[in-house]
């Protein structure tokens, strides 16, 4: 029986960065309060993945029914295990799984729930969580109650890289009438929907020539994003209208909006100002795009795009 339980996520056979972060902070809190940490993970890769996790205990659920994420089976299994092994703090990442299971677990276990957490810390005798609310416009500081489920926004703090040798047990998956009919892999063909991309490499008239679009494509490839653009680029016929960001185009809210050679006309800003992170590159330091960007550079995009692509490709190996 552990005090802090991390519900882990496994991807490509390893524990995700987000789960590593949860384990890191779980260990920090546990150490300060002399408590124990358990990690619970699902799937045939789980055992290998959590074997070296920084936890005292690892619970792995191996069953055909948990190979793909199934909210019903996962929830039933977690509820059963957590009822048998009541924990003080249950940590999940604020991913689909966290959004799906967090509040439901809290309700089933009749404990509190804290969402969109970006920090967990000890201050004197209290344990505090900082949460992002109102679309990130406000932060709330909340006292951790005796028992709670907390969902944490990935990337809120760094993972320590520590490893451990947890005691590994198995636990049986619990049945649920919910079934996974089929898994749909990301569609690489067809025209992309820029409103659904996490990263947009967006080009404006600073691209100067349609041949330079190749540089943007390569960068998008390297960064794992999609190319979008301002209206004049569409007007010139260099990209289809479906790629246009702005008032008369699409409204986008990607995790990263990389604005390259875009001046930041009001009509353009209207379509992208709510992006989570905006990085603008424009040779004119007075360009209005810098008023909404979080980071800016006055480099020449025609030089920057290949340089950045190379750096990213080098890193990806």
């Amino acid at each position: 029986m552990a005090d802090i339980v991390v519900v882990g996520e496994i991807q490509n056979g390893v524990v995700t960065d987000a789960t590593q972060e949860l384990l890191t902070r779980a260990r920090d809190l546990a150490t300060a309060r002399s408590r124990s940490v358990a990690v619970l993970a699902f799937g045939k890769d789980a055992e290998a993945a959590v074997k070296t996790a920084d936890a005292d205990e690892a619970v792995v659920v191996v069953d055909q029914a948990v190979e793909e994420y199934n909210p019903g089976v996962y929830e039933a299994t977690l509820v059963t295990w957590l009822t048998e092994n009541p924990a003080l703090l249950i940590l999940l990442s604020n991913t689909t799984m966290g959004m799906d299971l967090g509040a439901a677990l809290a309700a089933r276990l009749q404990i509190a729930m804290i969402a969109y957490c970006t920090d967990l810390r000890i201050e004197g005798s209290s344990e505090l969580a900082t949460c992002q609310i109102y679309g990130g416009k406000l932060a709330a500081e909340v006292e951790l109650p005796d028992r709670a489920v907390v969902t944490v926004i990935p990337g809120s703090w760094a993972a320590s890289g520590r490893s451990g040798i947890p005691m590994v047990h198995r636990f049986n998956a619990q049945p649920s009438p919910i079934s996974v009919v089929k898994v749909i892999e990301p569609d690489a063909s067809g025209d992309v929907d820029i409103t659904r991309a996490d990263i947009l490499v967006s080009v404006g008239r600073g691209i100067q020539d349609p041949d330079n679009l190749e540089l943007a494509d390569e960068l998008a490839q390297a960064i794992g994003g999609v190319v979008s653009c301002s209206r004049p680029v569409v007007d010139a016929g260099w990209l289809p209208r479906s790629r246009q960001v702005g008032k008369s185009g699409q409204t986008v809210k990607p995790k990263l909006y990389l604005a390259l050679g875009i001046s930041g006309a009001p009509e353009h800003l209207q379509g992208m100002k709510d992006a989570e992170l905006i990085v603008a590159v424009n040779s004119d330091e007075n360009a209005p795009i810098f008023d909404v960007a979080h980071y800016g550079a006055t480099a020449d995009i025609l030089d920057l795009m290949p340089a950045l692509t190379e750096k990213l490709n080098g890193r990806n190996g």
Binding site: R205, R231, A265
Partner: peptide, 10 residues
Amino acid sequence: VSMFSASVTA
């Protein structure tokens, strides 16, 4: 102002 400036730009 917006319409025609944008056209001149485009």
